[in-house]
Simulated scan of single mutants.
Amino acid sequence: METLWWLLPLVLALVIGGLCPLAGTLLLVQRRLFLANLVSHAVLPGLALALALRLDPGLGGVISGLAGALLAERLSRGDRSGEGGDEAVLNTVLAGFLGLGVLLIPLLHIRVDLEAVLFGDLLAAAPADLLRSLLALVAVLLLLAWRYHHYVYLGVDPLGAASAGLPVQRLRLLLTLVTAFTVVSAMTAVGVVLVIALMGAPALVALAGAASLRQALGRSALVGMGISGGGFLLAIQPAVNLPPGPLIGVLCMGLLPLASLQHRRLSASG
């Protein structure tokens, strides 16, 4: 069994590699990808409180991340200074929740490895991490199966979707909840930095030239699994011997020139 020590981390890397791009693609087509960045930082106060109360840190993180996202959206809707004002609200809430989490650590006399929060540790993955990620993947797939056409409409024409009577706020709330669950489930293994990268880069590549949202979702999941699984296998090679999380993040950055090239080709052919 010791010779297969890499099997659980590899399976987890593949699951997260498929999970994060699915949620990221949904957010990207609605121009709400920054929500993933906000949630990933807003989970820290919940993690700290859950540890202090001897509760499941994942549950605390989901509640905290969801609270941060809802607060930011509520304040953004009340802002009257345009898109720049919305970005200012989102950034301020992100910084506030992150600062609150850092302050709670010494105030509650708990120990939180901030480096693990940022970069995770795939090599220390436990079966519980895999189970949590699988549950998050099921949640994303159920949401897509239940509301796929609504999210297509919402991504193409949000004003038209609202005029047609779609429950826009409920759809956004469901996506926010699933995003928070995705971030928390993946963060314990790969950290905040990689979660954000896996939500963004594969989605950008997949959306270029995609004929439908369904096709983009499938492409993004395959690209994410390839980058995540391939990056993990490369990282554990004796000649490389690097931390998997940061290496996968760097590989995600390498996708950006490919996405840019695809967009230029499409623009030229159009």
Rank of each mutant, 00 (worst) to 15 (best):
G155H: 11
A48L: 11
F119K: 00
L233A: 04
W6F: 15
I16D: 00
A36Y: 04
V193A: 10
G249W: 10
P167K: 06
V205I: 06
E73L: 04
L100C: 03
L234I: 13
D79L: 03
C20I: 03
G270A: 15
F181W: 13
R132L: 05
L134S: 02
L49P: 07
G226T: 05
L141Q: 04
G270C: 04
G17L: 02
L217W: 10
Y151K: 09
L118H: 06
P167R: 10
I110C: 13
I63S: 03
A180M: 07
G230W: 03
I196Y: 15
L233T: 04
A48G: 12
L256Q: 02
L33A: 15
V240T: 09
G160H: 09
L137I: 04
S267T: 10
P244H: 13
G60Q: 04
S133I: 05
D113Q: 04
G99S: 12
A206D: 13
S81H: 14
L247V: 08
R172P: 00
Q215S: 13
V195A: 12
W5D: 09
T3P: 00
P246I: 08
S163Y: 08
R77D: 15
V29A: 03
L7K: 07
L194S: 11
R132A: 15
V117W: 10
A126P: 00
A72V: 08
L28M: 12
P244F: 11
T3M: 03
L194N: 11
A208Y: 11
A69C: 06
P257Q: 09
H150Y: 09
A189I: 14
A126K: 15
V43E: 02
L166K: 11
A126R: 15
V250K: 03
S185K: 01
A139H: 09
V140Q: 05
E87G: 14
A126I: 06
A125P: 05
V117K: 09
L33H: 09
T176I: 10
